[in-house]
Design a binder for these strands. Structure first.
Lengths: 135, 135
DNA sequence: TATTACCCTACCAAGTCAATAGACTTTTAA
DNA sequence: TTAAAAGTCTATTGACTTGGTAGGGTAATA
C-alpha cells in the first residue's frame, strides 16, 4: 500500500499540474485545497524539490511549482521516491535490489512470479505521467 | 514489499507442498531446511492453520501438513492473509476497502490508474497456486 | 506415562509512519 | 531599508508495526 505521504504527494502534484505555468503556488493553498497537514506537506514538497520535480520561490509571491512539464513526470518515479520499491520482493526490484537470503534466484518459483507481477505493474506505472492523472 | 513473515510463509508452504501426502512435517525440520527462526515459524504456521490452509498433528510423529491440495491454494490468498492488501490504495482494494478521504472516487485519476494496477497484479496472483511455485 | 510436539501468552528492541513544533533564512515588495 | 512573506531545516513525538525471543502449558501417541 502507498503511504499517506505518497498519497498526499500525488494530490499535491496533481494540484500543481492544474496550475502549471500559472506561477508559484503557496504551500498553505495546497494544504487547504487538498486537506493535507501543512507542516507535513512542507516536508513532502521539500523532498520533491530536492529530487528535482519541483522548484520554489521564496518571499512574497513565492511558492512551489512544477519544474518539469507534467507529462514528463512519471508516476513510477514519484512512488519510488516517496514510497520506495514497487516490486514485492527485494530480489526482483530494479532500483532497490537486494539478494535473497535462502533463495537461489535461478531456481525459485516465487522469484519468477514476482518478476511477472513487477513487469505488469511497471508496464502501467512507467507509462503514466502526472498528466494522465488529471481527467 | 512483502514482509519477512510472508516470505517465510511462502518458503514453508512450498516446502510442505513438496511433501504433500507424505504425512506431517516437523516445524523444526522446516525451520532448519528453510532457515526460518523456529519460534517465528511456529506463529506463522499457526496462523496458516487457523486460516484453514494447514492442519497439524500433535505428539510423536506429529507436525504440519497442507490441508488442501497445493493446486487449491492461491498465492493471492496467502498474501492477503499474512501481508494484507494487495492493492496500492485502500479505495481500490477488494478485500480491505476503505473510502478515500479528500478524493472523489468517481473523479480521481489516481484511483482509476490504481484499479488498473490492481487488476494487472491480481490477474497473476489469483491464477497461481502453490503448485506453480514448485518448478 | 513419558515424550514429543504443538499451542499460547507475553515481551522486547528497533524501526517506521504521520504529524507537530519552532526557529532560521532568504527574498521581495513597499 | 526593513518588515512581512514564504520556504528551509532540525528535532521530537506517540502510536504502531516488524522481526524476533522466552518460557511454559497442553494435548496426543507410541
Amino acid at each position: 500500500m502507498l503511504s499517506k505521504k505518497s498519497q498526499y504527494a500525488f494530490n499535491a502534484l496533481v494540484y500543481l499540474a492544474t496550475k502549471y505555468k500559472e506561477g508559484p503556488v503557496l504551500i498553505s493553498e495546497i494544504s487547504k485545497k487538498k486537506k493535507i497537514p501543512l507542516k507535513f506537506l512542507e516536508n513532502i514538497l521539500l523532498e520533491l524539490k530536492k529530487a528535482g520535480m519541483l522548484d520554489s520561490k521564496k518571499g512574497k509571491g513565492g511558492g512551489y511549482f512544477l519544474k518539469k512539464d507534467p507529462s514528463k513526470i512519471k508516476v513510477a518515479n514519484v512512488i519510488r521516491l516517496l514510497n520506495g520499491p514497487i516490486a514485492m520482493l527485494p530480489c526482483v526490484s530494479l532500483y532497490f535490489y537486494e539478494r535473497c537470503k535462502n533463495c537461489d534466484e535461478k531456481n525459485c518459483g516465487l522469484h519468477d512470479m514476482m518478476i511477472e507481477v513487477r513487469d505488469a505493474t511497471l508496464n502501467i506505472l512507467e507509462n503514466r505521467t502526472l498528466n494522465d492523472l488529471l481527467l
